[in-house]
Design a protein around this nucleic acid. Sequence first.
DNA 1: GTGAAAGCGCTAACAA
DNA 2: TTGTTAGCGCTTTCAC
Lengths: 332, 332
Amino acid sequence: MTITIYDVAREANVSMATVSRVVNGNPNVKPVTRKKVLDVIERLGYRPNAVARGLASKKTTTVGVIIPDISNVFYAELARGIEDIATMYKYNIILSNSDNNEEKELVVLNTLLGKQVDGIVYMGNKITDKLQDELKRANTPVVLAGVLDATEKLPNVNIDYKQSTYAVVTELIGKGHTKIAFLSDGIENTNTRAKYEGYLMALSEAKIELNSALIVELEGNNYHQGTIGWSRLTENKVEATAIFASDDEIAIGALNAAQDAGVKVPDELEAVASNNTKITLMARPQLTTVVQPLYDIGAVAMRLLTKLLNKEEITSPHVTLPYSIQKRGTTK
Amino acid sequence: MTITIYDVAREANVSMATVSRVVNGNPNVKPVTRKKVLDVIERLGYRPNAVARGLASKKTTTVGVIIPDISNVFYAELARGIEDIATMYKYNIILSNSDNNEEKELVVLNTLLGKQVDGIVYMGNKITDKLQDELKRANTPVVLAGVLDATEKLPNVNIDYKQSTYAVVTELIGKGHTKIAFLSDGIENTNTRAKYEGYLMALSEAKIELNSALIVELEGNNYHQGTIGWSRLTENKVEATAIFASDDEIAIGALNAAQDAGVKVPDELEAVASNNTKITLMARPQLTTVVQPLYDIGAVAMRLLTKLLNKEEITSPHVTLPYSIQKRGTTK
DNA sequence: GTGAAAGCGCTAACAA
DNA sequence: TTGTTAGCGCTTTCAC
């Protein structure tokens, strides 16, 4: 049989309330009593039932994490940051993959809310209106990690994608490139859109006309899509001399395809990627990228959520973390 | 205010029990009644409270997942398999990183049990005795995913590491290699030990004497350790002509270090890795590896757990999935 | 086919 | 400082 708080109370000759106080570290317990209770707990091997506690206190110390795909390095690093901080603040996380599919997101959100999570960390391409509504209806705190909120309504943690993209593209232009390809997943996705805007801004500032043959919109952020990206570019016969990729895997896919076709990197083709996941080091040449502090984005997002949960004061619900640019072998 | 089952019952003029039956798909409800209840649920936006349900039914439809590091591609792919099958069977997963640290594992396990998870999927280097004891005491079903259980007590899903390593090393020997390095994390780790035994078996069968300078035990499965592995090999002055690595990241680290030092791969150095994570495709040359069906290992482990939870009949608690060998650019 | 009522194990007033 | 006592929202006998 399972040992309950009642068993402990009986054995220690105190009330359930006192046991509860001891377990929860309430200071209003005489040290002697505390010791006595602790001993019984030890002897009986009592372990508090978090489900009962959750029902009574209406707090589960569990947060839901909606993530597109945990096997994607980018999200996995964010997730690690989230989990570490969650643990630090005594929360557990329920992880659910959404595949960036709105329908799944809705189902997952509903399950999470049914499980009475105290809060939610959302990662994905964009917050759809429907999702936004559901979230509001539930009025459970939510923080977006690595996703801009187009409407600026939800707390979120990001870097400035537009600015960072502008910076690297401008630098490429400064080296004389005029045919700079932009490889990305769907431009309707919030972050990608911001990057695209940065790209456009750099071009326009340099008075370079936009060549749509250089814009390749892919169907996802992965290696395979990157290789497709390169084929698309060659089909378009644009002879790009530089690439900006919205994702590391896309960049590696495109570069490997290019190199397999005999293109010399970085001599004939320079490239800059976006996320600085650890695969940037494994590729040859190693990737030059915008450095997004992925772990930190996750960590800060979770920290922000804990503040929301404790009703701590919040300086700003929109955190923009600094980015940097890491130069490696794919640029001269 | 939150809508409870009681509110629904009142509005629908039925008892809580009936609402409960409808919500749980119990067939003993007249269609008319069911419709009536469903309508009220819809109208009120009622969402069952899983915590209360968990307390009453002693089932949480939540399983704990103990994982060394979710940002490691290897584990992330296993995790994805686990989560997909969990979702399929209506379970959620609570994910906890352990960093392969026994103390953390113990803490995590305890939290998970406190949260009344219905079962646990464990990933890690090895099941220590203490952990084994705690697991037994809780008598919560556990399945190991991608970890051999030295004592053969716990259900687990794996491939035959010894056999697969034996096969690839034997093939290297067949090509004339006699100086085959073995790069791995700690040999005390269950899976690594099995691989090491496979390596030894191949050597002994070919009557090649074991050269301890070729055995490099590293401090973890990551890229950086791989680069260290290569330095170690050069310090040892053994001039290995082939490498077997227990991990893909280690392999890439070692190969990149070797190539940076001017070694031609695969002409002067052949290499075989172990896990076939997706980074094997991104490296240049692409890695030849033993193919572990990572996603499937996770998926099958979770499926096995659901069987345990439903008390379904189990053919065997020790599942060995088939492996294969994928030849790519690091071997001739 | 449906309802009444007793818990599940704990927290949180409130009282003492 | 400690105890009493309602619940928290649901499932699950057991009756009818």
